[in-house]
């Protein structure tokens, strides 16, 4: 018996790829994609239903199609695609509420997979080095995407209490990067000159886009009830990441970074929110033991190798790295010449 999967947020790149990935799976009978705007590319076997998860129509879709697995992918981190912070918040919070309300009334539903984010842990100097799933943030996120995620998680937990028969898998994904995805960190690394916070070097952890899709697919097929951090192995420092990518960077004091951030945000070049400034100051690491041992998922990319795939997609500027390599080579040559 194949299952029927409903995927929200399929017009985004990751959502569309996930829907295609799921529809190719023999264990899944049908995949229904839902979004407010039709997806651009070819969706293959996926049936697209144009519906807004912010209104109750979604309940009819879930009941009518006898959906047994709902994958909630439309918790978005960048307001750019939603058209502003207000509608982003509405989509994230009200959308999730409506979707969960619809799910609660669906008798056939067996499984719910929610893509959350490690942004729920916030970033502060009082953070432990590695957050495990049962740790609470030291400083509650008060605005932006992180607050949305906190609220979404709250609703999902409430839903899990009310429908204990449904397996609810919440995936707290680390910052997703990759050659094709558009996430705040990718936009940040694509800035012509990358601003950093003077006197701080954040610890960063990344998840490759393929691994995010892999993790969501794994959870949708044989998920385990619970909350899991999903991230690549290892940590890179922000300075190291910038060097690896090969971008010029400039260190600014904290207040200047915030100002540059709001300037960048207003010019729509990249999303640069206050909580991202905190992240770039103090960083964050999450423990993925439960992901490996309980969920049974392994990320194929490490943090460093995910960065390397991003590097190939970003045209590198004139970097110091190349210059030193040339110098090293030249010296080697010259020394070699001396023995002739």
């Amino acid at each position: 018996m194949g299952s029927v999967v409903l995927v929200t947020g399929v017009s985004g790149d990751l959502g569309a790829r996930l829907a295609r990935l799921l529809s190719a799976d023999p264990a899944i009978e049908r995949v229904i994609g839902v979004d407010v705007v039709p997806p651009r590319g070819d969706m293959g076997e996926v049936r697209f239903v144009r519906a807004d998860i912010r209104n109750p129509v979604i309940a009819k879709v879930i009941a009518g199609e006898e959906v047994d697995t709902v994958v909630h992918m439309s918790v978005i981190a960048t307001p750019g695609t939603a058209g502003g912070r207000t509608s982003m918040k509405e989509l994230n919070v009200i959308g999730t509420m409506q979707l969960l309300a619809a799910c609660q009334k669906a008798p056939n539903l067996r499984r719910l997979v929610v893509r959350s984010s490690t942004a729920v842990y916030g970033s502060s100097p009082r953070d432990p080095a590695m957050f495990t799933e049962d740790m609470a943030p030291k400083r509650m996120p008060r605005s932006g995407f992180a607050k949305d995620v906190v609220e979404v998680e709250g609703y999902v937990r409430g839903f899990a209490r009310r429908r204990p028969d449904i397996e609810v898998t919440m995936l707290r994904a680390a910052n997703t990067i990759g050659p094709r995805v558009t996430s705040p960190m990718v936009q940040y690394f694509r800035l012509p000159v990358v601003p950093t916070v003077l006197g701080f070097d954040a610890r960063l952890q990344f998840l490759h886009e393929d691994d995010l899709l892999g993790a969501v697919r794994h959870a949708a097929l044989d998920g385990v009830h619970g909350t899991f951090n999903v991230a690549g192995d290892g940590i890179v420092m922000l300075s190291q990441a910038i060097r690896r990518i090969g971008r010029p960077s400039v260190a600014l004091p904290t207040f200047a970074v915030s100002q540059v951030g709001s300037l960048v945000r207003r010019s729509r070049v990249a999303d640069f929110s206050p909580e991202q400034v905190a992240y770039l100051t103090y960083g964050r690491g999450v423990d993925t033991t439960r992901m490996r041992e309980v969920l049974g998922f392994e990320a194929r990319h490490t943090t460093a190798s995910a960065l390397d795939t991003l590097r190939s997609a970003i045209s590198p500027g004139p970097t110091m790295g190349r210059r030193v390599a040339v110098l090293e080579h030249a010296l080697t040559q010259v020394r070699g010449g001396a023995r002739g």
Binding site: A129, M130, D201, R203, G234, I235, V236, M237, S239, Q240, A241, I242, R243, R244, G246, G283, G285, A304, T319, M320, G321, V324, A325, L327, E328, L331
Partner: peptide, 18 residues
């Protein structure tokens, strides 16, 4: 020189505490 190249290209490792 090898050290310099590694530092400048970011080709080094830090542990999870930085």
């Amino acid at each position: 020189l090898a050290f310099l190249r590694r530092r400048v290209t970011g080709d080094y490792e830090v542990d999870e505490y930085g």
